[in-house]
Design a protein around this nucleic acid. Structure first.
Lengths: 122, 122
DNA sequence: TATTGACTTGAAGTAAACTCTAAGTGATAT
DNA sequence: ATATCACTTAGAGTTTACTTCAAGTCAATA
């Protein structure tokens, strides 16, 4: 699979894919004899993971660190678990904050729908 | 209430509060005779709203637009409702993506806890 | 009275995550 | 054969949201 196809499938740009590779989040991707990238199924799975975590707001620096540990093998299992738990906590807090904002938006839209125009901003 | 107290209450810096004011998200805050800001209860409520929405990832530019419309009065009600619905949609998509990442993290941590060390990254 | 601490300003600086540019290569369509 | 198109690189530029800086004011305390 070549870069533009992968980009299309994931809704990323080719620039972003090359950027992730530069940063060590994916790859290095094997290249054909003309120098173009050929993404394997393994590469695709990695991109899936990275995309999911990025969409959740996890930082590139964290993903870099986690992937590096993973590549260092079994001896890093304990540390990997630890940072996953860390990230889960951060993510949970964000989720809760977002849920609160979501509820607030719902409430306000509901007021608009009922034509209750109070003079409060929110 | 003066700026440092407000900052402390909301876990923001005084710089951020002045920045929000510059951008028109809050205030203009009334100043005492020595030129320092005095935040009213109204100001505090506005900051609460802004903080909640920012924590959910809504952009400054959106908040600016919404607040401007609000200040233009009842004639902007329709447009306000429209952009709230827009933002709610964006927020919902983010929430879902984050929930997915959260579940994935949970699943992986669970594997670590059970000492099932598969060789997959995620 | 001198110094400390919190405040003020406008403007410049920073971090994260892309995004774009310029210059070039190689395979395919006219 | 020539033009078009997708790809390559290194490196510069952009956006968003702050954050820091430099220089100054004012009130209170040692």
């Amino acid at each position: 699979m070549q870069i533009s196809e992968v980009a299309k499938e994931f809704g990323l740009t080719t620039d972003t894919l090359r950027y992730y590779e530069r940063e060590g989040l994916i790859g290095p991707i094997a290249k054909g004899k003309n120098g173009t990238r050929n993404y394997t199924e393994e590469d695709i799975k990695r991109i899936q993971f990275v995309k999911c975590m990025r969409a959740a707001g996890l930082e590139i620096s964290f993903l870099k660190r986690y992937i590096k540990l993973f590549e260092e093998g079994d001896k890093t299992v304990k540390e990997r678990r630890k940072i996953l738990v860390e990230q889960r906590k951060i993510l949970k807090e964000k989720l809760d904050a977002m849920q609160e904002a979501y509820n607030r938006l719902n409430y306000k839209i509901d007021l608009y729908d009922k034509n209750i125009l109070d003079k409060k901003l929110m």
